[in-house]
Write a protein that binds this DNA or RNA. Structure first.
Length: 441
RNA sequence: GGCCCCGUGGUGUAGCCUGGCCUAACACGCCACCCUGUCAAGGUGGAGAUCGUCGGUUCAAAUCCGAUCGGGGUCGCCA
């Protein structure tokens, strides 16, 4: 028998039943719930797209199904009937049911309720089954659509997708903690970001992007930090200044939101979420002006603060919504003292970076900016910071051999979804979170 | 790492301060039965927890004390 795609292509999903009214179909999926009544019972079958109601009158068949635990895998053949009383307006009648795989025990919590009634640690401990819950699945459908939108937007702008190594030989970048590992007896590290490699690749493709994991060994324990997350990175050459990067980022965010609207519409509907409007031009504010506004409004003295606190970011998020009707706001020109060495300076205010953060509903979502591109600037900056350019020889090779003005950004995927769905904790929008206490599942 | 808080059936909680009536309660799940259309269905009954672990105080400990393990919040650190 030749191999065939038929088992996949012939599949009828629960969200397509309206198209099959009056026809016999075969559905496959999980036993979501059985509601038993005296004369009639309702089997709710769940597949990757949704749920369908199966009406059973046969008492013997009800007994067979009642003996199964929820989440058993079934095949259901029956006729599709339009029925106003049915959820969704269609249901399956006169079913013939085959048990494909029997669940061994009941789920640790009810997957058929509108929301899982368990605490986050319990949900995360049971991730293989908890992720099946329609609401939790919806988060990750939005995540998948976001990645697709990111890629699609950048491809249209002639960016090339790359994959850079996650095992690296030097701890690079700032003093942020890195995970060390044993690489055949030599020390190695998990990459904290694709920063160096994506810059190097600007010398090859001019415009590159990458979707991949980054690793942070910081021992923080907060609702917005995890130790492995997905970074949506882009880097581009021949920019005018950081404004070019901001314009590209605006398009990318717009593309990601649009992709969610197109590819994850049912997830949005299930969660009752309205997509944010991405303004044609996202409002921006200089770091110093942001601080001045916060001080004027709250009396908080920020004159010696080189960064914005989470509370400051929340204030700016509210300000952007109030004053500009925008869920997004750029903060430009952070002090150089807190920025990594490859950061380009604002030519008019050299103590401040030619870079930005993008806040989304009061949380930092993206960091980006223009980078240095002249070899001597790198040597000077690394030396000024008390480091040795020789430690960065491989990276600096790109600049020794000529690089254009360039810049880029990195979006935190889990934060993007977390803010969209108003999650209290970033772990809710992370498939299998890795944090200081959690290494499994 | 600092400070604060919490560990009670599969899940979520009550009880703890003011020790004994705790043979540990309630809701959901699970098991059995009932109910002509459910849709977070509804009803009746049942099983299931030596109250994280170890030690101490006491006639008596889920309850008080100590240690330990696990978890949460917050601040700090942190592209």
């Amino acid at each position: 028998m030749p191999s065939s795609l038929a088992p996949l292509t012939d599949r009828v999903w629960t969200d397509q039943l309206e198209r099959h009214v009056g026809e016999p179909v075969e559905l496959k999926g999980w036993l979501h719930r059985l509601r038993r009544l005296a004369e009639v019972s309702f089997l709710i079958l769940r597949d990757a797209r949704g749920t369908a109601q199966v009406v059973i009158h046969d008492a013997a068949l009800v007994e067979r199904i009642a003996a199964l635990q929820n989440e058993s895998v079934l095949s259901v053949r029956g006729g599709v009937v339009a029925e106003p009383q049915a959820p969704g307006g269609v249901e399956i009648h006169e079913p013939e049911i085959t048990v494909i795989s029997e669940a061994q025990e009941a789920p640790p919590f009810d997957l058929y309720r509108p929301v899982i009634r368990a605490q986050l640690p319990t949900i995360l401990d049971s991730a293989p089954v908890a992720l099946r819950h329609p609401r939790r699945r919806a988060y990750f459908a939005m995540q998948a659509a976001s990645m697709a939108g990111f890629r699609q937007t950048l491809r249209q702008l002639r960016f090339t997708e790359i994959q850079t190594p996650k095992i690296v030989g030097s701890a690079t970048e700032s003093g942020a903690n890195v995970f060390a590992l044993d690489y055949f007896g030599r020390p190695a590290y998990l990459a904290q970001s694709p920063q160096f490699y994506k810059q190097v690749m600007v010398g090859v493709f001019e415009r590159v992007y990458e979707v991949g994991p980054v690793f942070r060994a910081e021992p923080h324990d907060t609702a917005r930090h995890i130790n492995e997350y997905v970074s949506l990175d882009a880097e581009m050459g021949f920019i005018e200044n950081e404004r070019t990067v901001m314009a590209v980022l605006t398009e990318v965010i717009r593309g990601m939101a649009a992709a969610i609207g197109e590819e994850a519409a049912s997830a949005l509907a299930l969660l009752g979420i309205t997509l944010p409007e991405v303004p044609g031009v996202i409002p921006d504010v200089h770091f110093l002006d942001a601080q001045a506004m916060i001080t004027a409004a709250t009396g908080e003295d920020l004159s010696h603060e080189p960064d914005l606190s989470p509370a400051n970011e929340r204030w700016l998020g509210e300000w952007a919504r109030r004053e500009h009707g925008s869920d997004f706001v750029f903060v430009r020109g952070f002090p150089m003292s807190k920025r990594p060495f490859y950061t380009a300076r604002d030519p008019e205010r050299p103590d401040f970076a030619a870079g930005f953060d993008l806040l989304f509903r009061g949380m930092e979502l993206v960091t980006g900016g223009q980078r240095l591109h002249r070899y001597q600037d790198y040597v000077d900056e690394i030396t000024r910071r008390g480091d040795d350019p020789a430690n960065y020889a491989d990276y600096l090779m790109a600049f020794r051999h000529g690089m254009p003005p360039h810049g880029g950004f990195a979006i935190g995927l889990e934060r993007w979804i977390g803010q969209l769905v108003d999650a209290a904790n970033i772990r809710e929008t992370t498939l299998f979170p890795r944090d200081i206490n959690r290494l499994s599942p």
